[in-house]
Amino acid sequence: MSGKLLNVAVAGATGAVGNEMIRGLESRNFPVKSLKLLASSRSVGRTLSFRGQDIAVEELTADSFTGVDIALFSAGGGPSLAFAPHAAAAGCVVVDNSSAWRMDPDVPLVVPEANPEAVAGYVGKGIIANPNCSTIQMLVALAPIHRTYGLKRIVVSTYQAVSGTGKKAIDELSVQTQAVLDRADPVCGVYPHRIAFNCLPHIDVFLENGYTKEEMKMVNETRKILGDATIGITATTVRVPVFYGHSEAVNVETRMPFDMKDVRNLLRAAPGVRVVDDPAGNVYPMAIDATGQDDTLVGRIRRDESMENAMNLWIVADNIRKGAATNTIQIAEILAEKYL
């Protein structure tokens, strides 16, 4: 990375992903000259630690970005739509973690392991979009397969942790779990049904085509990131009673034939991937192993014997880290190294 120090802002600093962004900037030794922490007016007065110093949280406003080089946004879609253009107008490059800008044709959508060259497109609006957490981990694993063999079709089922919904969902799972164990009636607030000891095939709102918005995010974002609208993709997204870590069962059909040994070697060499695959020893990726890690874990790697040129993968990652904060910082690292 270049030796230039940058003025950085984190919008949504007091949330789970914002907190992780601050920790990531420190642990990855990002070249921070100054750090501005922004949140809603409710959080003004709080302090958060960065490199041993307490930094006061300021209110996120249209005037927050004067002199800021890079802003990492995790404040939600509404605030992103409201404030990211102001940041860009002030000469700041925004890396946004919400869904607000992902499908904008003038905004690059980036997974650094899949399409790092797309970062250059930030000049269009001064904004770069961070993909959906489930899309990110899937494409970390599938990008090298696509580059080598070409992806023809993807069938993915996700098993997503409640932390993807936020702190209230984490608390609800905790409270409901205790209620069930105590033989009491659990109260549902965040989700329409009980999540404790249950699975909900329902993430985000249902659309007219019968899919949820989350499922269509995976379809549309994958095609944009890989630059191939011809890839057939279908998704089913499920919320499961896990606190952290999303898991995915992925079946892919490739355009070219492959050897499974070569696929394994390809994945072992792929950046951001850690192959965890020894079924005989009961070794395979699990959410509890991915939690707190930046790698995407891939296992249960096997040929699909029901059709030609197809394989199955089990892909697991920490949705707060690689699925959100870390991917955002990796994009900022490319910006710092090559463009700013």
Rank of each mutant, 00 (worst) to 15 (best):
L313Q: 08
F258C: 01
G18I: 02
E117N: 11
T158W: 03
M103N: 12
N265E: 14
A269F: 09
E308I: 08
R183N: 14
E113Q: 14
G272N: 02
N198H: 15
P186Y: 07
F50A: 01
V123N: 07
T14P: 07
P85M: 07
G272A: 04
V283K: 12
V316C: 13
G15F: 04
D104Y: 04
K213C: 09
E308C: 07
P108T: 03
K322I: 13
I127R: 03
S157D: 12
I315A: 04
L313G: 06
L60A: 01
A324D: 10
A324M: 06
G45V: 03
K4H: 13
S43H: 05
N319L: 12
V68L: 07
N209T: 09
V276Y: 00
A16F: 10
S163Y: 06
R23M: 05
I70S: 05
I331R: 01
E308A: 12
I22G: 00
P271Q: 09
K168N: 11
S64M: 08
V111L: 01
S34Y: 06
P257A: 12
V275Y: 05
E308H: 10
P201S: 13
A71R: 01
A82S: 13
P105L: 11
P108V: 02
V250D: 02
S163C: 15
V240M: 03
I315C: 05
S163T: 11
D259S: 06
R183W: 12
A270H: 02
G67D: 11
E208P: 07
D204E: 11
K152C: 04
K213Y: 14
A161L: 12
I231E: 00
I154T: 00
M286V: 10
M1C: 06
V263W: 03
P186H: 09
K167P: 04
V242N: 11
F197C: 13
G232H: 12
A290F: 00
D106T: 05
S41M: 03
E113F: 01
T165P: 04
G77V: 10
A39W: 00
V110S: 01
V242T: 15
A332M: 08
N282I: 06
K33L: 11
Q137E: 04
R239I: 15
I127H: 02
A39R: 00
A82R: 14
T177E: 14
R194N: 11
D63H: 12
V162R: 02
T165S: 13
V242I: 14
E20Q: 15
L48P: 00
V57F: 00
N97T: 10
E221A: 05
D106R: 05
L139G: 02
Q176N: 11
P257I: 09
R300A: 12
M21E: 08
E208C: 10
Q160Y: 02
A141P: 04
V17I: 15
P186W: 06
A310F: 07
N7R: 15
G210F: 09
L38F: 03
D204M: 13
L48T: 01
A141G: 04
A310P: 06
V190F: 07
D304R: 06
I301N: 04
E59H: 01
D278K: 11
V57L: 03
G124V: 04
P241H: 08
R302C: 12
V111N: 00
Y284P: 00
A82C: 08
M1S: 11
S49K: 14
S2V: 10
D182M: 08
K261I: 13
I233L: 01
L38P: 00
T328M: 15
G189E: 15
G323V: 01
E337I: 06
Q178P: 04
E308N: 10
G15K: 04
